[in-house]
């Protein structure tokens, strides 16, 4: 029982990463019918931006210009990196995808893969091949709760992820921009007739997804402080699987499936040797999708009204 709860804590942490990234895939698909295959690399860029913001803030602290406690540096890093990475996402949309709005979806998918490679190799060219180590902003404290070891970092990671999902939910359900996003997912073509600029909502969607990816990148850096230009590939694909598992375009589905993926991975590893983990975990997901091809929360039709 103790080991179950121990695994549960780890599953929640991984689920947080997957869910935050999967949300970006799902929102963009829901609104623009586009799989943004560069999204894993946008996560990577977010982690790097977080690294530079944190390092910069720490340097200011050391030089005595400002004195900030570690948790405040982390909080500021998350906020600033989310804002900056949303600009990266909007640029990707503007430069990479907008010119292809009416092109076949396969062209847009290939563009996404190319943007991903450009972000990876651009990073490599700019910063070199050495890995960066994310600065330790908060000291690890371990609490023993009825035999289960929980660190303050894990609580923080899951807490921040859930908080951001709640904020996203409120944004989408309560604001007029969120309303426009939901409407656009339902009927893309008619959006301008409401006086709503399509390009504004498209940019907003990419911005929100990329901001969440940046948060995921920093939380990931706090847990696993090694950054390299290819760190976004595997986790990006896994989050993409979560988005599909949740149901294309379903926000709730993406969040739920992100956590589900974390659970399946962690609990597979408790039963089977760790080298078998992904093989078995993704076989399970393949079986789920065989029976629910539209995902857990997806709708039975995929082609929305689009003229």
């Amino acid at each position: 029982m103790v080991s179950f709860f121990q695994n549960l804590v780890n599953a929640l942490q991984w689920g947080s990463f997957y869910a935050l990234i999967a949300l970006g895939y799902s929102m963009v698909y829901g609104i623009l019918m586009l799989f943004n295959f560069a999204h894993g690399d946008i996560f990577m860029v977010g982690a790097y931006i977080g690294f530079f913001v944190a390092t910069g803030l720490l340097a200011l602290t050391v030089s005595g210009s400002i004195a900030l406690p570690g948790w405040l540096v982390l909080l500021l890093t998350i906020i600033i990196a989310m804002a900056l990475n949303s600009i990266v996402g909007m640029l990707v949309e503007r430069i990479g995808y907008r010119p292809l709005r009416d092109a076949p979806r396969a062209s847009a998918a290939i563009t996404g893969l190319m943007i991903g490679i450009i972000l990876e190799t651009g990073n490599l060219a700019l910063l070199g091949a050495q890995r960066l180590s994310f600065p330790p902003l908060i000291a690890t404290e371990t609490y023993n709760i009825a035999g289960v070891n929980v660190t303050n970092k894990k609580i923080m990671i899951v807490g921040v992820a859930l908080f951001l999902m709640l904020v996203l939910h409120l944004f989408i359900t309560k604001t007029k921009w969120g309303m426009a996003m939901r409407a656009m997912a339902y009927d893309f073509a008619i959006i301008p007739l409401m006086g709503v600029p399509i390009n504004l909502i498209a940019a907003l969607t990419f911005g929100l997804g990329s901001a969440l990816a940046a948060a995921a990148g920093i939380l990931y850096g706090v847990a696993y402080p090694i950054l390299d230009p290819y760190m976004g590939i595997l986790i990006g694909w896994k989050a993409f699987v979560a988005a599909i598992l949740g149901g294309r375009g379903s926000i709730l589905g993406a969040a739920f499936a992100g956590f589900l993926l974390g659970f399946i991975e962690i609990f597979t590893a408790t039963i089977f040797p760790s080298t078998f983990r992904d093989l078995i975990a993704y076989s399970i997901i393949l079986i789920i999708l065989t029976f629910r091809p539209h995902g857990l929360f997806g709708e039975a039709y995929s082609a929305r009204l689009r003229l």
């Binding site: 426009a180 939901r182 409407a183 339902y186 009927d187 008619i190 409401m194 006086g195």
Partner: peptide, 25 residues
């Protein structure tokens, strides 16, 4: 303004939300 053929209301939004959205700008 333009009332399109086939209505094209946003079925996933409430009636009020449809009206609110039309005042977006």
């Amino acid at each position: 303004s333009h009332v399109p053929e086939g209505r094209h209301i946003f079925g996933n939004l409430t009636v009020q939300e449809n009206l609110t959205l039309s005042a977006f700008a």
